[in-house]
Design a protein around this nucleic acid. Structure first.
Lengths: 136, 136
DNA sequence: ATAAAGCATGGAGTATACTCCAGGGTCAAG
DNA sequence: CTTGACCCTGGAGTATACTCCATGCTTTAT
């Protein structure tokens, strides 16, 4: 069995791309659990923390607030939370995300159309991105 | 031909769901063009403005900053901008969005799996959302 | 014609998510 | 055993995106 050497906050910061202060901020906010400490009080992280941090970064880019990300992260077994409840939340979040995916797909489609038009016409007509919205 | 009655900011706010102050803020930021004014100085909007506003709201929910949204909105022919340039920007934005879609799809998949597990197991194992990230 | 509702401007205040000290221990290298 | 790099806490400061006045003109309803 492999006992990994302690990963201090600086290393976690480098491997995750998240600033040290931000990591500590996430800890305060409860997004990452308080890590173990070395004898002298240094934070000591493991692989799980790295994964969690990466997830947070991704979710943030996708437009979730830290609040929402916290909810996603605690979806698993919060002891007092019934299974049916977890299921409902998970499904409703999934539906929400499906909606976002659709919207992104529409915007992307429009951008590609625009790019194509640029290949031949002069693209001087009213913004195609908006045109696609007016119909809704 | 139909000359639509002037839509003042209050009405635009109601139909778009965007607060009056926020609309004015977007105008300051250059996200929506300064509208025509009535004789007495009231802002007078048209259908285009409504579409634009809706687009901004959606894009914001999808995690774009106002800065980025501004770029998307001005993608069309900014006279001094060459067609090839517009095309490149549009394509790179489209690729960016495709990446987001993939990430959202992964998260959604995980949530659905989680919901399913909840149907039968006790969901007391480490957060599946994270498990799916550790492998990357 | 007067009150209530709506709009205008400029500027101050707020929430979220960081970001940056100050002051002070810890640790590896020379 | 000191110098430089790293870490600690607590708290102040910043950027983005609103949100809320104060003051004053316009429009609508009674």
């Amino acid at each position: 069995m492999l006992y990994p050497s302690p990963m201090k906050i600086g290393e976690l910061s480098k491997t995750s791309g998240v600033a040290i202060d931000t990591i500590r901020y996430y800890e305060k906010r409860g997004l990452i659990p308080p890590p173990a400490r070395t004898v002298t009080g240094y934070r000591d992280y493991g692989r799980r923390d790295l994964a969690r941090l990466k997830f947070i970064v991704q979710a943030k880019n996708l437009g979730f607030t830290l609040e929402e990300i916290g909810q996603l992260l605690t979806l698993r077994s919060t002891h007092e939370r019934s299974c049916a409840e977890v299921r409902m939340v998970a499904e409703s979040k999934a539906a929400e995300i499906a909606e976002r995916i659709e919207q992104l797909t529409r915007i992307r489609r429009t951008l590609l159309d625009l790019a194509e038009q640029c290949g031949q016409s002069s693209a001087d007509d009213p913004c195609p991105i908006l045109k696609s919205m007016e119909e809704k």
